Structure formats: C-alpha cells, structure tokens
Simulated assay, not measured.
Amino acid sequence: MNDKKTTHFGFQEVPVEEKAERVAEVFHSVAAKYDVMNDLMSAGIHRLWKRFTIEASGVRAGHKVLDIAGGTGDLSYQFAKLVGSNGQVVLADINASMLGVGRDRLTDRGIAGNINFAQCDAQFLPFPDNTFDCITIAFGLRNVTDKDMALRSMLRVLKPGGRLLVLEFSKPQSEILSKIYDTYSFKVLPFMGKLVTNDAESYRYLAESIRMHPDQQTLKEMMDNAGFVRTEFHNMTGGIVALHKGIKP
C-alpha cells in the first residue's frame, strides 16, 4: 500500500513535496515575459481586476500591507503610493525570479524606502503575529500546495480587524461562457505561451491549475474554516475571476 501523500499539479497527481519545485520551474520560465503575457491573455482586463482589489482593500496612509505572490509588483506599486512614507509594503513571493523582476520594476518606477521584499512560502509566513493591516494574494493561491494552511498563516499575521483579499481565477457563471473559456484556455493560451515565451507547457499548467482551484463558494467556506469572519466574494468578468474578502476577528 502506498501511503505517500500526493497533490495536484495541474491535472497531474504528484508527491506533495514536489509541487512547490514544479510550480517554481513554471514561474522561473515565464518571469521575464510575465507582464506581457498577462496583458495578452486578459486583453488588459487584469488591470481592472487589480484596481478593484486596491479599492476594496481600504488601505490608507501608515498601513502595513503584505502582497503575497506579489510577483512583478503591480499591487505593491499601488499600495506603496497609498501607505506613504509612514507605511510599509512587503512584496512576498516564493519564486526568486519573479521577486527579482518585481524588485527591478519597482526600482525603475521610483518606489523605494517603504517597500521590502521577502522570498517566502505562503504556508509558512516568516512574520510575527498581528503584523499587517491588509494582506493580498492575487493569482497565487491556486499554486499553493496546502491552501488551508496558507489561509491560517495569513490569518495569524493579520492584525485583528485586518482584511485578506484573494484575487483568483474562479468558475464562470454561465455554461456558454464556460465553454468559450475552456476553448480559449486549452487551445489559445498554450499557443500564445509558445509564441511569446517559447513555453507552451507552463501555460498549459496555468490553465489546468485554474480548473483545479476551489470554486467561489468552496473558497469562501475555506476562509470561514480558517477563522475569517464577514467573508464574501465578488464575481468579475462573469465569474472568470472572483475577489474574496475576509476579516480577522
């Protein structure tokens, strides 16, 4: 009998201890062209999803913000402007290549002084209890091996009354949209990945990982079970993307 624990990597079953390394390989591969591909894949709509997230965050001057899976720094850039010189933003990512791209981009855009960088795993956040006013994780939770552990880790480092925002691909609300989205994800995305990054496989994984991610209601229940209160979600683009919000009691 095989007792070895497995988890999903896209549609594959892999040993739990291998998933993080495999995800890392995907993002090492796509880091340099990540922003270009985001704009192409979403026709620029990802910027609107992120703007909505910023507006829902309630972040203001003096706040401490943790941007998990912050990658190339889109959210961190906006947060750094909002928190001002008395606030602090931590851009965290498990992937060194993505973190390097994010650091370079933010430096080029003149952001310094109130931003720090941390290479860390969302399941084991290396920060004291009750540190942050707000935590965001945008398009990163589906890549985490143990999502329940990560949600509990985020709850721990939030201040009481602080909020978590999870921006993630989710389940389209209509059958027609779902079919169109499937065709796009499994036919067009890998082709674009091959064209732009010479890497179809990484974008096939991204499409598969979206399908394996919990739907809107399931993720809300996971946040409830982790200890968040007043949890809710807002569908965008017909449910292709959802923003989940929860408060630490």
Rank of each mutant, 00 (worst) to 15 (best):
K81F: 03
A118R: 08
V89T: 09
N116T: 11
L106D: 05
S76G: 10
R109H: 05
Q88T: 12
N116K: 08
G84M: 10
V83A: 07
Q78Y: 10
L82N: 07
I137E: 14
C134V: 14
R142N: 08
Q78W: 12
T136G: 13
I94R: 10
F117T: 06
Q78R: 15
Q119K: 09
Q119A: 01
V89H: 07
L106T: 07
L99V: 04
F132N: 05
N114I: 06
I115D: 15
C134S: 09
D146N: 15
G87M: 03
D104M: 09
C134F: 04
A138N: 09
Q123H: 03
I137F: 08
T107E: 15
G102C: 05
A92W: 07
V101D: 01
L99N: 01
P128S: 10
I94Q: 13
T107Y: 02
N143Q: 10
T107H: 06
D129Q: 05
S85P: 01
V101S: 00
V101C: 04
K147F: 03
A138D: 06
T145V: 13
F79K: 12
T136R: 00
G87K: 02
D121Q: 02
D121P: 01
L99Y: 06
G140M: 03
Q119G: 03
Y77L: 08
G84I: 11
I94N: 10
P128D: 14
Y77S: 05
T145A: 13
P126H: 14
F132T: 11
C134I: 11
T136H: 07
R142M: 07
F127I: 02
A112E: 15
L82D: 14
G113W: 12
I137P: 14
Q119S: 02
F117E: 14
D108I: 05
C120G: 03
A96E: 09
